[in-house]
């Protein structure tokens, strides 16, 4: 009646609770499990083993790990109110474009800032572990991103809402019901804003987070470029030994 078209606070509160719960239920690793004290960092002997792997074997290992992480993101998406009501084309478009972005966002939980390592293959691994991939620049950008997001010390709820915001991007190509996605993303943004206010975070943190979206998109574009280059070198390898879901998501 007062001309205000924004959704009621109870709607936003409900969506916020739903997304935070979905995040916790689908996080792959609990935060307590990711305490660096629970796991050793990669030892010199392990490091040698990783570095001596052929480029193909290391790519395959990472493709498997990425695919595992992505499956949890699919579950996360499915539990977000409104996602399953989108048409199936749009569900697929959002997941193809955004699932790896969410994996990179979630990585900040698994990042140890004391020694610049990230939880990988049951250990904490530094960038040197990924040398055999032949993508030093991409790996160093991924670690930079994890470091910078980790330094914001986000709570689980904040990470959950930010992940949902990243996933429900209305500007993806090939969306059929752009307006529905736009409305959902707007509600998620409001929920995130409310939470940040409630948590008494610095003003400007929302802007900082929104800026991170372009960085994470750049990382995913570079992943696609590296994959294309790798596939040009070893076409059979990708075809026969990479997980089918990885090929569906990143194959074209």
């Amino acid at each position: 009646s007062n001309g205000d078209t924004s959704p009621p606070d109870s709607d936003i509160e409900h969506l916020s609770e739903n997304i935070c719960k979905s995040h916790l239920e689908t996080c792959q690793y609990l935060r307590e499990e990711l305490q660096p004290s629970n796991w050793q960092t990669v030892l010199q002997t392990d490091l040698d083993t990783y570095q001596k792997k052929s480029q193909e074997d290391m790519w395959q290992l990472c493709a498997i790990k990425v695919t595992e992480a992505v499956q949890y993101v699919v579950e996360f998406a499915k539990r977000i109110d409104g996602f399953m009501e989108l048409c199936q084309n749009d569900q697929i478009v959002l997941l193809k474009a955004g699932s790896l972005e969410v994996v990179f966002v979630r990585m900040c939980r698994a990042y140890n800032s004391q020694n610049n390592t990230v939880y990988f293959d049951s250990k904490f691994a530094g960038p040197e572990v990924f040398k055999a991939l032949g993508c030093d620049d991409l790996i160093s950008s991924v670690f930079e991103f994890a470091k910078s997001l980790n330094s914001l010390q986000l709570t689980e709820d904040e990470i959950g809402l930010f992940s949902a915001y990243v996933l429900m991007s209305a500007d993806r190509c090939w969306l059929q019901e752009k307006t529905r996605v736009e409305k959902l993303q707007q509600k998620i943004k409001l929920a995130l804003q409310h939470l940040l206010q409630k948590d008494q975070r610095d003003e400007g943190i929302l802007t900082k987070l929104v800026c991170k979206v372009s960085t994470v998109r750049m990382l995913c574009r570079r992943h696609m470029e590296k994959l294309s280059a790798f596939r040009a070198l070893y076409p059979e390898m990708v075809h026969t030994r990479f997980p089918p879901l990885y090929k569906e998501l990143f194959g074209s």
């Binding site: 239920e25 689908t26 792959q28 595992e68 499956q71 949890y72 699919v74 579950e75 499915k78 399953m84 199936q88 569900q91 697929i92 997941l95 193809k96 089918p244 879901l245 569906e248 998501l249 074209s252």
Partner: peptide
């Protein structure tokens, strides 16, 4: 649909992360 058959399956499944 054929092109994204695994994604379709994952979206239709009522699986939980425990089943993954």
């Amino acid at each position: 649909k054929e092109k994204h058959k695994i994604l379709h399956r994952l979206l239709q499944n009522s699986s939980s992360p425990v089943d993954l």
